[in-house]
Design a binder for these strands. Structure first.
Lengths: 164, 164
DNA sequence: CGTCGTCGTTCCGTAAACGGAACAGCCGGT
DNA sequence: ACCGGCTGTTCCGTTTACGGAACGACGACG
């Protein structure tokens, strides 16, 4: 935490002012003598430009399963300027589902389901998620997308390309 | 958060006892009327068997306006390992809307609406999007989220932090 | 050697998060 | 209808995290 601040070359006083927290708070936070609220912690991490998870010792495991594909309508809504991320809005119609070939190595797919039930992932071991669920896998193998049941599925699809 | 508990079939009272926190605390936590300390949050998530990152959400990104009902619920679904992107699933309830303070300079917000009509963006010049629409703005100024009409809004929220 | 500016820590009154208890609502059994 | 046990919410006194101010330490400058 302190390291994050120091490698940016800003003082405790400055960071406290920028983040809108007291110096006493930030000092105690860096020394581990306080038990911060989320609000406080976020104010500081946001100012440092890192997500909360960057300062939490949390495991944040990555249950990487492989494969998945879209049998759906993809609407590209955003591509990052340096093209390492692509965000899509996805609709999967009821039916037999669709297959997607393997992407380049290192590509990760993130799917968040908003309505319906989606079965997606590697063709040999697909995952299932209902509304609110989130799936993740590395898409360097063939993968599939299918709506479970009679309802269409709406979801967001985020493609993450490896840093070049 | 509440969903995590309910899908395990345990009551609020039971979880509070197992996690060693007060029922009032857990109740307020699930309803977004508290700003929990890390200690409290960890006690609960550890008992649920999920990492802290599984429930990190709204209060941090859109700090709960004290005394007011929270109208936007954020569920973090994914944080990139190098911490330049955060993907959220967002629900905005009908009502007066919710304000979010300015983020650090250079942060861009991307919102894709899945259902309902969302009015969001800088407080002085908000944008509107219906299902399928996409909004984007730089979030270094205060911005707001509000559902237009009587229907709740479901959307994805992508936060892009500047490359360091 | 004094003075100034900034560093990070500590003190302290205030605001709020905390746990326990009391509460109303709902069900199932008698 | 009555009760006992459960649900989740609200009330309230205690604890504690909060920010502002005061503090000593250090370095730069005259």
């Amino acid at each position: 935490m302190r390291a994050l601040r120091e490698e940016r070359g800003i003082s405790l006083s400055t960071l406290a002012r920028l983040a809108g927290v007291g110096k006493a708070t930030l000092s105690g936070l860096e020394n581990g003598t306080r038990n911060p609220t989320l609000e406080t912690l976020y104010a500081v991490t946001a100012q440092l430009g890192v997500p909360l998870t960057a300062v939490l010792s949390g495991p944040a495991e990555t249950p990487t399963v492989r494969g998945a594909a879209v049998s759906a309508t993809l609407l590209e809504v955003f591509t990052d300027s340096d093209a390492t991320y692509e965000l899509y809005r996805m609709r999967v119609a009821p039916g037999p589902g669709q297959l997607s070939p393997a992407h380049q190595a290192g590509v990760t797919e993130h799917v968040t389901v908003f309505s319906g039930v989606l079965r997606a992932g590697p063709v040999d071991a697909p995952l299932t998620a209902a509304a609110g669920g989130h799936l993740r896998w590395t898409s360097d193998v063939p993968h599939s997308y299918a709506a479970v049941g009679d309802d269409e599925v709406w979801a967001s699809l985020l493609l993450r390309y490896p840093r070049r």
